[in-house]
Design a protein around this nucleic acid. Sequence first.
RNA 1: GGAGAGUUGGCUGAGUGGUCGAAAGCAGCGCUUUGCUAAAGCGCCAUACCUCAAAAGGGUAUCGAGGGUUCAAAUCCCUCACUCUCCGCCA
Length: 422
Amino acid sequence: MLDIRLIRENPELVKTRLATRSPALVPVVDSILEWDGRRRKSETALQEANGTRKRLSKEIGGLRAKGADSSALETEVKGIGGEIEHLEAQTREADDQQRELLLNLPNLPHENAPIGEDATANPVVRIWGEKPDIPHPLDHIQLGEKLGLFDFPRATRMSGSGFVVFTGPGARLERALINFCLDLHTEKHGYTEVAPPFVVKRDSLVGTGQLPKFADQLYAISPEDLFLIPTAEVPVTNLHREELLTLADLPKKYVACTPCFRSEAGAAGIGTRGLIRVHQFDKIELVKIATPEESFAELETLTSHAEAVLQKLGLHYRVIELCTGDLGFGSMKTYDIEVWSPGQNTWLEVSSCSNFGDYQARRMSLKYKDAEGKNRFCHTLNGSGTAMPRLFVALIETWQQADGSVLIPEALRPWFGKDRIS
RNA sequence: GGAGAGUUGGCUGAGUGGUCGAAAGCAGCGCUUUGCUAAAGCGCCAUACCUCAAAAGGGUAUCGAGGGUUCAAAUCCCUCACUCUCCGCCA
């Protein structure tokens, strides 16, 4: 969440920047300030009452120690109790209101973020490789059926639409891609591998920003107040929640592969066949915890680490930067990486690399001790490195051969074990 | 699932219902001593919020979380979460 002091001291800056996301956010800022005023007023009154009670109680202690009569004071203090109770309730009400509004307010876009209303305004930052020249490309569904890579009907029968079973060489390709990515990031890029739980508590999701605003995207586990993770970002970023890190600890670099569970309520295209949008998919996630000074440079290297996956697999891709109107809820700056899908004749988003600034750190109380010994909020970053199903799609569509087989790119062969699926 | 013991600052760890935001040690920071390293001595060192134009200062809260008892709770009572030990059960 945003720093209330920033909002208080510089409301116009906050409004201007938030308006680039959506003009509807501007009145919310005013509402937050209003509750902030009430909260502080009521808090001050409460503190004064508490102070009086504390002081008088000490006096009583002093009188009793001397064996003197304290009954008059005791009666006086007793009366303060009711007042305190009332002020406590009033303060809590204002505090809750303010907090709720703050938790639902998105992060400020970075000052250099491209301004725009929606995805059509996202500038292309760079393009790597070229569109493969495939005369009559099959799409991944056709290829998968021919080669026995996955089974949608059976997955649907057991779990409902939007689920997939990988089969035979498809399951092996999925596993090979996962191991290829994990080994690349741990051995070449210096990330520490973690294998987190796939189930988290509510607080963790509040910490990374999925809750309270995006509850309808999550699978909840009842009767416990637990949720299936929509991305490894949640457990991995929360690894250090409520901790005080030292400067020498930073940057922290983690990589994790987990399934991601998304209800995709109301999402366009969930009805379409294929692997493009499913309720459960594997994803390699890169997470960094950095100092504010380094975080934007760390975003560049993180993005390049995700790109390395596509480069090694010989997949044509482009990097775009999200404009203010398209930026994710907690992000200040985001690069999306889109891989070319010859079968769909379109770009597919396989990675989204973001710097959240201190937005998440503030929500989960993640700090570090700086060179002056002051405690400051860390900056958090994450990016996919990469999402598996779409990588799978791009790979088999790009490397399909005229005879209907799929060539395995050389870099992947040590993990897949064969040079071709046929 | 049963029985018991715990949860205190960055870490370890004392703590009597009242002067306890909390002993001591470690780590960290500063100074002194020192040929270097090391060691020793002295001092500083929790967080959030409120107040103040700001700084200084002042104040309130926080000893796992939430309730309760009391003039007053780290300390007493209740509920919950978590940790550890033993027993049982189980992949």
